[in-house]
Write a protein that binds this DNA or RNA. Structure first.
Lengths: 273, 273
DNA sequence: CAAATCTATCTTATTTTTAGGACAGCTTTT
DNA sequence: AAAAGCTGTCCTAAAAATAAGATAGATTTG
């Protein structure tokens, strides 16, 4: 297994500057301080600053102009292609349709403790574990690990899974999802996931864990989803409902942002012989 | 400015292992693979693995036993203390009450472009920028950067902000939030944030960006929140609404997980003279 | 009790990163 | 046109991180 990243100080300067650019603290078109000035500011050598800037340039966040300076290259990532979907469930189905899926793993295994608990499967029951990578415009953006009780999993084939959304398959089998719980967090990409998503090990990922229950309260699906935050984000609109005194907010929609930079970003990885 | 962190590969192995421990993939009491095995697995030297493990041990996440192995030291963070709140808005207020806040910055500035756009402030209008760190049990878990149009910001004092939730202050001034948009993502901690949250640079964070609009459609607040995923998570329950054919899901509540490990974790930082 | 396994410690060598500077050439300003 | 300031490139040296292996002592297993 290979661990590849930017060196230490470089990485740090890179992150600091990236933050300033992305957050908008440095506006589009603005010139960054000179490499020398930055070097002094962060108490590192010019070499280091230079490496950091090169990373930003490769990401298309800044532009270096010889003899002039380094400029923030914003303004292009203004209009992300978004698909506004009116509810969560349709969203899931839609995702299954409009994006390409690669099925990486498909097997029946003993469930990890957490999964067994969440799905409330019988002690001896096995679960179907599948790993899928979803892409949009040939750029992978999500890494999905799903666990489904065997009795449910047998209702569809390996091939089905590669073509249809999981919940859609379940609907087809007459199973109806009733309730779901989900949790959002952030994790770092491990080598396996990093490879599949074309990012560096240690990149930040959105983690979404969802447990779907059916009518009888038994678990239907345990999903662990990892998303590249630059390619996918969870968005929601909240509207205050009810009258004057009410403090109730209600989400109205979830938005799926597919794109930010126009072209598939080159896979950044150091390859050693 | 001083940049201090763990070395590169060490840092990475540390983060990867930490993730496995915190996420529960490695259960409390379980023995990690031997140092040698880990070294092979991650293709690094034993020295590196060792450094990473030492960091985990210092954090009290694992325990090293001479001659035996390294063990996950969990069991304490079994039951996250959760406060189940029935809606988003009350949630925000509640957060303001039950947790301690440290006001790091409070000033009136020209808004970053993004903010100006989102809030639709006048070209020359300034905004109040505040940075707050919220703690629970003396452990910081969120880093909040809020922008409020000056005319609204003047309605309350610096001191108010250190004691009450922002939206609550607005309500007090007779302003009502009507709609909001929010986006969830993941980012890496930069040195500033890392310092404030007591974590290492490059740790993963949940990023939540929210824009709150009032009645007239003008912006009231632009919030950029960063959360430690091990101390805070966004949870929601979804319930299918409507009859047979309906595919509508509706969130019912948001849950705030305040705690995971019992005691304030020591701030891990290398201090260089 | 012996064998196997594991962590602790130390040593040496190699690789990678960073520092610090010099200089050429391009751009902008004066 | 000259001056000032900037990036691109190259070089040398120091510092830091990592690799790889040997050995000692603790612990567990058979």
């Amino acid at each position: 297994m290979r661990l590849a990243t930017e060196p230490l100080k470089t990485q740090k300067v890179y992150l600091l500057l990236r933050d300033k650019v992305v957050s908008g603290e440095l506006r589009a078109g603005a010139r960054l301080p000179s490499e020398f000035a930055l070097a002094q500011q962060y108490a590192v050598s010019r070499v280091t600053v230079r490496l950091a800037l090169d990373l930003l340039a490769k990401e298309n966040l800044v532009e270096k102009r010889v003899g002039s300076g380094t400029y923030v290259k914003g303004a292009e990532f203004g209009q992300p292609v978004t698909a506004d979907l009116s509810n969560a469930f349709a969203h899931l189905i839609e995702m299954g349709r409009s994006t390409a899926v690669r099925l990486i793993a498909f097997e029946y295994v003993e469930p990890p403790e957490k999964v067994a608990e969440a799905l409330r499967v019988d002690a001896d029951e096995r679960v179907q574990k599948s790993v899928r990578v979803r892409s949009f415009d040939d750029v992978p953006f999500s890494y999905l690990t799903a666990y489904v009780p065997e009795r449910i999993g047998r209702e569809y084939s390996r091939d089905d899974l590669a073509h249809m959304a999981l919940l859609e398959l379940m609907e087809r089998s007459g199973l109806r999802a009733e309730t779901a719980w989900q949790e959002v967090g952030a994790v770092l990409a491990n080598p396996e996931v990093a490879e599949a998503l074309g990012i560096g090990v240690g990149s930040p990922l959105i983690s979404l864990t969802r447990v779907v229950h059916g009518k009888n309260g038994r678990g239907m699906e345990y999903l662990q989803a990892l998303y590249r935050p630059d390619r996918y984000s969870l968005q929601m609109n909240l509207v205050r409902k009810g009258g004057e005194g009410s403090r109730h907010w209600s989400p109205t929609s979830e938005v799926y942002r597919s794109e930010r930079a126009p072209r598939p970003r080159a896979i950044k990885r150091k390859v050693k012989t």
